[in-house]
Amino acid sequence: MKNQNFDFQPTLTGELLKVRPLKSNEFDLLFAVASDPLIWELHPQRERYKKEVFEKFFELAIKSGGAFVIEESGKAVGSSRYYDYRPELSQVAIGYTFLARAYWGGLYNCDLKRIMLLHAFKFVDNVIFEIGVNNLRSRRAIEKLGGRLTGHVDLDGTPHVVYTITKSSFNF
């Protein structure tokens, strides 16, 4: 049995990125990254680049207790979070992730997910990713990391696919 006290907001350092807890006074910092409409073009919430829409996202991120700022050389370049911890299934979800376009292309996302997965696997055996059905960019990124398509779910009226990465299958 894994430790039941999942640490939702550690500071994690990878080869390229640092992940640290998001603070309630950092809306402007994160919105400066999120205000690019192209970040959201394949996302189910395509309007998230708008300030009034992002405000709701940010508020929920803070309330979640598991949200992060992703930094590269001290500069905010995105966000992610842990959520939906289910100790009875030895499972947690990683999601709500976005990166500035300059950080697309694999290396940064791989570094981010690697450090988040390594941390999660200290507490659970399974990590899930819920991704909008049409978000092919995110789906391919998770598949490159070894994610297996394991289901479908409807979130806020929008179809999503569920990918799973298990501790035993993850190549550290």
Rank of each mutant, 00 (worst) to 15 (best):
V77W: 07
S79P: 10
A93M: 08
D84M: 05
Y82A: 05
K75R: 15
G78K: 01
Y96I: 11
E88S: 09
I94P: 00
S90Y: 11
T97R: 00
E72T: 13
E72W: 12
L99S: 13
V92F: 07
T97S: 02
R86W: 11
D84Q: 15
A76K: 08
A76L: 09
E71W: 06
E71N: 06
K75E: 15
I94T: 05
Y85C: 14
Y82R: 07
L89T: 01
V77T: 12
F98P: 14
Q91P: 13
I94N: 00
A67V: 03
S79C: 02
S80A: 14
A93F: 06
R81Q: 14
G78H: 03
A93T: 02
F68S: 00
Y83V: 01
L89F: 13
E72P: 13
V77M: 03
A76I: 01
E88V: 13
Y82M: 00
G74S: 07
L99F: 06
G95S: 07
G95D: 02
S79G: 08
S90N: 10
L99R: 10
D84N: 15
P87I: 01
V92T: 07
S73I: 03
S73W: 03
F68N: 01
Y82F: 09
R86I: 15
I94V: 08
G78D: 10
